[in-house]
């Protein structure tokens, strides 16, 4: 049986911070809300006895991705409040209501089996990565490499074009 109180607290924190992520207007606040969301999800994984997922979530999401977001917030010119229109907010609310209705119907129709709690060691979590999931696992390496090369290529193309503009302005 899962401990109910920690699960409820972590779920509430995750839901509140998720609302903050879409409701806050300053990008820095949004990044901090995403950090809180990621950490509350890591705590929820601990309550679910999925220690490896909790550590991975903390390291990769809180440690790497949120920091990457913060760096880009600092680099972009407009760090100020976002100007959004009422039409956009209405569209977002419509999507929220429609998706909630659709997904709630789908989830309510599917039953949840209730198994005995089982804790998986890192060895047990890693075993499928070298058996059934070998191909996706190996494909993550070229995926990450392609992402790095794409990021550098996008940046370099921008730099080269800007240098060309500067030369054109001088001559």
């Amino acid at each position: 049986m899962l401990p109910l109180v920690p699960v409820v607290v972590c779920c509430a924190l995750a839901a509140i911070t998720a609302v903050c992520v879409i409701a806050m207007r300053r990008p820095v606040y949004v990044a901090v809300a995403l950090l809180g969301h990621s950490l509350s999800l890591a705590a929820l994984y601990l309550a679910l006895a999925a220690q490896f997922s909790a550590v991975a979530q903390t390291l990769i999401y809180s440690g790497a991705i949120v920091v990457l977001f913060l760096i880009v917030v600092a680099l972009l010119p407009s760090g100020g409040a976002e100007q959004t229109s009422w039409a956009r907010i209405g569209a977002g609310a419509a999507v929220l209501v429609a998706m909630l209705a659709a997904l709630a119907t789908a989830v309510a129709a599917s039953g949840l089996a209730h198994a005995e709690p089982e804790t998986f060691s890192v060895e047990q979590v890693g075993a499928p990565l070298f058996a059934e999931l070998l191909l996706p696992f190996e494909l993550t390496a070229p995926l990450l490499l392609a992402a790095i090369v794409a990021a550098i290529a996008l940046w370099r193309r921008h730099e080269v074009r800007r240098d060309g503009d500067d030369e054109g302005a001088h001559t």
């Binding site: 995750a14 839901a15 998720a18 609302v19 992520v21 879409i22 990008p27 949004v30 990044a31 969301h37 977001f69 880009v72 917030v73 972009l76 407009s78 976002e82 100007q83 959004t84 956009r88 907010i89 569209a91 977002g92 609310a93 419509a94 999507v95 929220l96 998706m99 909630l100 997904l103 709630a104 989830v107």
Partner: peptide
């Protein structure tokens, strides 16, 4: 489900690429 729907609403609502 709620978090996923929040994310979908955010994609429809946000103008800032980071958000």
């Amino acid at each position: 489900v709620f978090i996923f729907c929040c994310g979908a609403a955010g994609v429809a609502m946000r103008k800032n690429p980071i958000g």
